[in-house]
Simulated scan of single mutants.
Amino acid sequence: MTTASTSTELPTHIGIIMDGNRRWAKAAGFAQASVGHRYGADHLEDMLGWLTARGIRHASVYVLSADNIRKRSGEEVDYLFRLIKEVVPQKVQNTGEWQLHIAGDLGLLPDQSAAALRKAVAATAARRSHLTLAIGYDPKQEMVDAVRAMLAVGERPDDASLETAITEHLSGGPIKDIDLVIRTSGERRISGFFPWQSQRAEIVFCDKLWPAFDERDLDDALAEFARRRASQG
């Protein structure tokens, strides 16, 4: 393990768009490109360990959008559902550190996959670090759901407090605002990744495919974050 970053400022909350699993599998010679998703899911546990070592205790990770579920092939989506049921919850529980939160519509998942996630959420509830996984996630629907939740409890905030009220009803851990977003694979877009929460975030694009992303890449992104924030000061 490399040493923790010595940057003067670290993000409190980091967002990760872990992209490039299928391309990595093809480049590695696997007959089934979807095998990359398994390597990507395994790699999540590595990333959580690196964040813990650096004192970063809030993370949001894009796993599966609602559009992915609707548009990708049935075979690939079924494989992702199996990973969500059998691998992802266990990886989070293995850390012993991270409390799991879910952002997205679990009604889009098979019952067993949704049940496995809910079980992991309950099992990790007392932990000190907070991980939000975007699964079955649609950013516009998240905003609709937050406003509905606010109205359901009778809140009618004035204009000055409306932003705070909506933020408090969003899914995820206790700190909503994301300071740094990292997207792997070389793509230069955020694909609807928590737009409300990442409004003021620094965005770092990494050319590495997600399963190949390592600690040095993380430290490079953290150093870039620190440089940008220092220049703003």
Rank of each mutant, 00 (worst) to 15 (best):
L48I: 12
T52Q: 06
A53K: 10
G55C: 01
A59S: 15
A59L: 08
V61A: 13
D67H: 06
N68F: 10
N68M: 07
K71R: 15
K71Y: 04
K71E: 14
R72Q: 15
G74N: 14
E75P: 04
V77R: 08
V77M: 14
F81H: 11
F81R: 03
R82A: 14
R82G: 09
R82F: 00
L83V: 05
I84F: 03
I84H: 02
I84T: 11
I84C: 09
E86F: 02
V87I: 15
V87E: 12
V88Q: 03
P89A: 08
Q90H: 07
Q90P: 00
K91C: 07
K91F: 01
V92G: 05
V92Y: 06
Q93I: 14
N94K: 06
N94Q: 12
T95E: 06
G96Q: 04
W98L: 01
I102G: 09
A103M: 06
D105I: 11
L106A: 02
L108D: 01
L109P: 09
L109R: 10
L109N: 09
L109T: 02
P110R: 02
P110L: 03
P110E: 03
P110M: 03
D111K: 12
D111A: 15
Q112S: 15
S113A: 15
L117D: 04
L117V: 04
V121L: 00
V121H: 01
V121R: 03
A122N: 13
T124H: 02
A125Y: 04
A126M: 09
A126Q: 15
R127N: 08
S129V: 07
S129I: 11
H130E: 15
T132V: 07
L133T: 06
I135F: 07
G136R: 10
Y137A: 01
Y137Q: 01
P139T: 01
P139Y: 09
K140E: 12
Q141E: 14
E142T: 10
E142G: 10
V144S: 06
D145Q: 14
V147K: 05
V147F: 06
L151A: 13
V153D: 15
V153A: 04
G154C: 01
E155N: 11
E155Y: 08
P157C: 08
P157E: 10
P157I: 12
D159T: 07
D159P: 01
D159V: 11
A160N: 11
S161C: 02
L162E: 04
E163G: 08
E163M: 08
T164G: 12
T164F: 07
T167Y: 08
H169T: 06
G172N: 13
G172Y: 13
G173S: 13
P174H: 05
P174E: 09
I175E: 12
I175M: 03
D177I: 00
D177P: 00
I178E: 02
I178A: 08
I178Y: 06
D179P: 07
T184Y: 05
S185K: 01
G186Y: 12
G186P: 09
E187T: 04
E187Y: 00
R188L: 13
